[in-house]
Design a protein around this nucleic acid. Structure first.
Lengths: 227, 227
DNA sequence: CGCTCATTTGAAAGGCCTCAAAGCTGGTGG
DNA sequence: CCACCAGCTTTGAGGCCTTTCAAATGAGCG
């Protein structure tokens, strides 16, 4: 994983990162500041309840942020896709993060990340944008969980997936059915039946379990509550 | 509602609000910058879908942020309590905000609010904190909606209410049962039965429908998944 | 005091979950 | 290259719990 960055105008170390002029330079700067880290499929990236204040940025692959309650019921609170941050808020650091598939991450000390933000407006903006986006996603997740039928829930989930990973009308589904179930608040069996339902309606079309083609307009209609 | 602020060292208008030294001064500054507004019970404060970029801060009373889908199903995305902001994010501005009971608010133009944040670090920090808090709340809401029984959902809701409005072990419940139902993703009937359930277990005790005493430790145990 | 509406209570129906088993897939070793 | 195995996914049947529908109760208000 060699550094492709041929630009070596040295950052005059930490006292002057404010020189960063654009997003691209900020990216390269970040890659120097964070610790590069890889995680195999299903590997635990960080566990809640520790006092460590670490946050992450997904570079490749997908991560899931999970809470398991006293009775063993699992809730996937969100998925983090390439370019997403997670662990920015206190509450999220109390959850567990795992790799869905093989993933590459940048790891930061949360305090140090805040310090970097203070003197790097690009980074600060990026993080602020990430938080706004997280908040919007969480609100959508709330709506999805509260008042939807299984079909609508799955459609909403697939629309979300399409936004993050979609290529035209082709959508990769990297996570297992159990993860989907724990994200939308259903059992894997019901998720499977909802998939069958959407397939019958020709809203989705399987290449295989982890890759499908979607009829996006129909998907959106169903996700928003239309039949 | 006269201005109790006897301090009239004039803010040298908008170019120098950076002089604000502490939270209290920031409060007074805000009250000058925002438009004071009151809303009667059930009055609509702002409706989604408009192009207006307005955000609000609740000064007194409680507001609810609501989404009604195509089929008429309603989801209360969150309640906003005194000192809370809402409408900070794009997504939230697309929803509808209503007063639960008589409420007093401060209204801002969202763009102008951002401008104020830029040159007033106290305000910026307050808003950033509000967003982190909103995000944490949304995550808790997701967990509450996803994998809980009616009893656990109601317990989780009451714990949230206790955090915001609780006085010792007394909790006011300003909103009607239908709002609670649409917040926790149940019907009013089921909410009513869950109340009866918690009352039987002596976890809650009614003064009347809108005021109750709670056994907080028991409430927390149930909310977190314990029986 | 009577009215209206929110809430509670009751009974029946439908849908999701549970339990169970078959099918498929991807990976491994011969 | 093929066969086998383990685990994920799908399919099926039955039960429980929430919803739905309906009516009674209670509270707030003119």
């Amino acid at each position: 994983m060699g550094c492709l960055c041929s630009d070596t105008r040295g950052w005059r170390e930490e006292n002057l990162p404010c020189d960063l002029r654009d997003e691209e330079e900020t990216q390269r700067f970040l890659q120097r500041q964070g610790d590069r880290r890889v995680a195999a499929a299903d590997a635990i990236i960080s566990t809640g309840g520790t006092t460590e204040r670490r946050c992450f940025r997904v570079m490749e692959g997908v991560a899931r942020v999970v809470l398991v309650d006293v009775e063993g019921r699992r809730q996937v609170v969100r998925f983090a896709f390439p370019r997403d941050y997670f662990g920015l808020s206190r509450g999220e650091r109390e959850l567990t993060a795992e790799a869905v598939s093989h993933a590459a991450l940048l790891e930061f000390d949360a305090g140090r990340r805040q310090g970097l933000s203070k003197c790097n407006p690009h980074l600060a903006r990026q993080v602020a944008t990430a938080m706004r986006s997280n908040l919007g996603q969480a609100m959508e997740h709330v709506v999805l969980l509260g008042r939807k039928t299984p079909r609508q829930k799955l459609a909403g989930f697939l629309r979300m997936l399409h936004r993050h990973l979609g290529l035209g009308d082709v959508v990769p589904v990297p996570m297992p059915r159990t993860d989907i179930a724990d994200y939308v608040g259903l059992t894997p069996e019901t998720v499977s039946r909802a998939f069958a339902d959407l397939r019958q309606r020709k809203v989705v079309n399987f290449f295989d379990r982890h890759l499908l083609r979607v009829d996006l307009p129909a998907l959106v209609t169903i996700a928003d509550g239309g039949t």
